[in-house]
């Protein structure tokens, strides 16, 4: 082991969030999710199970809080006063529900990254919050410090657990990614295996990925196209345009929408005030005011 390696690469090793001197180049993967289009149908979540070898833990383990859904659909009931701490008191949910797909927000200043004792979770140059399963010792500090609680720990050895992947089921497993053994933390990766495969294939052509060439599994399946994924620094990409239209800045902790009362905008990031700088922008659900 070389100390010089440590000292020289320290600044590379950890970035708080993108700073002027080290901009993302040529990729910064990001997402936007239009909650007005999301219907809460769960297709994305199932697609994630299929793509990422997520174990089905079964009823008992689900009950114990051991589910592994990297992408979960949260269902909220609207309240009249969003700042109220009281639960919704309407007799009927006459404005419907609010669904929110929640997965790793790939924060730029990720609270999980700094605390990992072994450096198993790191920021990649293209703005992903990576998770090195082999390096993970399972201290679970990252999950403890995650504001969104989107990290999932392998409480059991699912590959050998009965009825998780019995017999023929193993043949469905995606060979592009590993099976995680017990004691390892995992989470949404923005389908990094697809990103890397895409990057490799265009590298041979001497160019960078164009918008739409890499899709995440959830994006690909989403029947209403609520999920947009792409390269935030590519001005041609839809995700870039959406962020721009909503005037959401990756490196800001307060967006236009928060500053102006009637900006007409609906883009926001969750728990922005914690300054984790998430890479996922949500667009507020719209409610018709005339009915």
């Amino acid at each position: 082991m070389s100390v010089t390696n440590l000292l020289e690469n320290w600044s590379e090793f950890r970035h708080a969030h993108p700073v002027g001197d080290v901009p993302h180049d040529p990729y910064k993967w990001a997402m936007s999710i239009d909650l007005d289009a999301c219907t809460g149908c769960n297709a994305c979540s199932v697609a994630c199970y299929a793509e990422n070898n997520l174990p089905v833990v079964g009823k008992e383990k689900y009950a114990a809080g051991h589910s592994m859904h990297w992408m979960r659909i949260e269902r909220y009931w609207p309240v009249d006063d969003t700042t109220s701490l009281e639960p919704a008191t309407r007799e009927f949910p006459d404005q419907g529900a609010q669904f929110l797909p929640m997965m790793c927000q790939q924060c730029e200043a990720a609270p999980c990254e700094t605390v990992c004792p072994v450096g198993a979770t790191n920021h990649t140059p293209d703005g992903l919050n990576s998770q090195a399963y082999n390096r993970c010792v399972g201290s679970r500090y990252c999950s403890a410090n995650c504001p969104f609680k989107v990290r999932y720990f392998n409480w059991y050895d699912y590959p050998t657990t009965e009825n998780v992947w019995p017999a023929e089921m193993t043949q469905q497993l995606n060979p592009d990614i590993t099976l995680r053994s017990k004691g390892v933390m995992e989470k949404c990766t923005f389908c990094v295996q697809r990103i890397r495969a895409g990057e490799r294939s265009v590298k041979n052509e001497g160019r960078v990925l164009k918008d739409g060439e890499v899709q995440t599994a959830c994006q690909q399946v989403c029947p209403t196209g609520a999920i947009t994924f792409g390269n935030l620094i590519d001005s041609e990409s839809k995700v870039h345009q959406q962020w721009k239209a909503q005037r959401v800045e990756l490196t800001a902790d307060e967006q236009e929408k928060d500053k102006e009362a009637d900006s007409g905008l609906r883009g926001y990031r969750i728990l922005e005030e914690l300054r984790a700088y998430p890479s996922v922008m949500y667009m507020e659900r719209v409610r018709e005011s005339a009915i």
Binding site: M1, S2, N5, L6, R14, T114, V115, C116, P117, V118, G119, R135, C136, V137, G138, S139, R140, Y141, F153, N154, K182, G183, V184, M185
Partner: peptide, 29 residues
């Protein structure tokens, strides 16, 4: 407490040929 207690030594700055260091930013370290 460790999920992979058999790998606990990853959290120590021991010599290894990959030049891997623990994360000196982590209070746990």
């Amino acid at each position: 407490h460790l999920g992979r207690l058999w790998q606990f030594y990853y959290s120590l700055p021991y010599p290894n040929d990959r030049g891997l260091w623990p994360n000196f930013q982590s209070p746990l370290l």
